[in-house]
């Protein structure tokens, strides 16, 4: 089988997703999956959002050095996910976004999600993990300047990121189980996830506290030495 011609496909996806696919999924969800339309629409939109980001990264001329460095950081966070309870994944994704740019942050976060799930279990939650970790890395890239300047802001971002990850994932949990969004079930899911949310928040702050300086120094050195 021959690979699809990439340039053309990429351009198609970039225009197809926002103008055709997204409204199409909404229409399909409403007409075909009557009771489960919210679950269907949210899953499809998550997948197409990730695809849209991937094409954006591909289109931009990214040097092979940056590409390899992002893969290195992705591999580090995959290895880090094996640490029990306290996971450095979000912290590493945030640092990638801060020092290598928003798109690299998105790619590192979403690739970590899909690849580490080979060890932790794939499922319909994978696209949502890709999207939420990716967005946390992307936002860190956009807020890079203030986050680099102030450690307090970085810790606040870590806390918000941990909570946000839980909030986004629980929207999916509720919609998947219930077929419809129910605020009562959502609150119950959030409450039952409190131990996890706390562990995310704590590990984000701890790992950002430990890693921010050495990682910043090393990545800045990369920038000065090799011009990435």
């Amino acid at each position: 089988m021959k690979p699809i011609r990439n340039e053309k496909l990429r351009r198609t996806v970039r225009y197809l997703v926002p103008f055709v696919l997204a409204p199409g999924f909404v229409a399909l969800g409403i007409t075909v999956f009557h009771e489960k339309r919210y679950a269907f629409i949210s899953l499809c939109i998550a997948v197409s959002a990730v695809a849209l980001f991937a094409t954006g990264f591909d289109k931009k001329r990214t040097g092979s050095r940056r590409l390899v460095i992002v893969s290195v950081l992705t591999a580090l966070s995959i290895v880090g996910r094996f640490i029990p309870i306290f996971k450095p994944v979000t912290a590493l994704t945030v640092l990638t976004g801060m020092y290598l740019g928003a798109e690299s942050g998105f790619l590192a976060g979403s690739l970590t999600a899909v690849l580490s799930n080979f060890y932790f279990g794939q499922g319909p939650w994978t696209p949502f993990q890709m999207l939420s970790w990716g967005l946390l890395g992307f936002l860190a890239g956009i807020l890079a300047e203030p986050l680099k300047r102030s450690r307090v802001l970085l810790f606040i971002y870590g806390i918000i990121a941990g909570a946000l990850y839980s909030f986004i994932m629980d929207v999916w949990t509720v919609v998947w189980y219930n077929g419809d969004f129910s605020i009562k079930l959502y609150l119950a899911a959030l409450v039952s996830a409190i131990p996890y949310t706390v562990s995310y928040v704590v590990s984000n702050v701890v790992f950002l506290w430990v890693f921010a300086k050495p990682f910043g120094e090393k990545l800045t050195r990369m920038h000065i030495k090799y011009g990435i």
Binding site: M1, P3, I4, N6, L9, R10, A51, A54, T55, F57, D58, T62, L67, V68, V70, S71, V72, T74, A75, L76, I78, V79, L107, L111, L115
Partner: peptide, 21 residues
């Protein structure tokens, strides 16, 4: 790889880096 070659390359590198690291 069917979809987009750059993420495919990054996946193969990241997967190779895990045992290497």
């Amino acid at each position: 790889g069917l979809l987009s070659p750059k993420p495919a390359l990054m996946i193969s590198m990241a997967l190779r880096f895990v045992p290497l690291f």
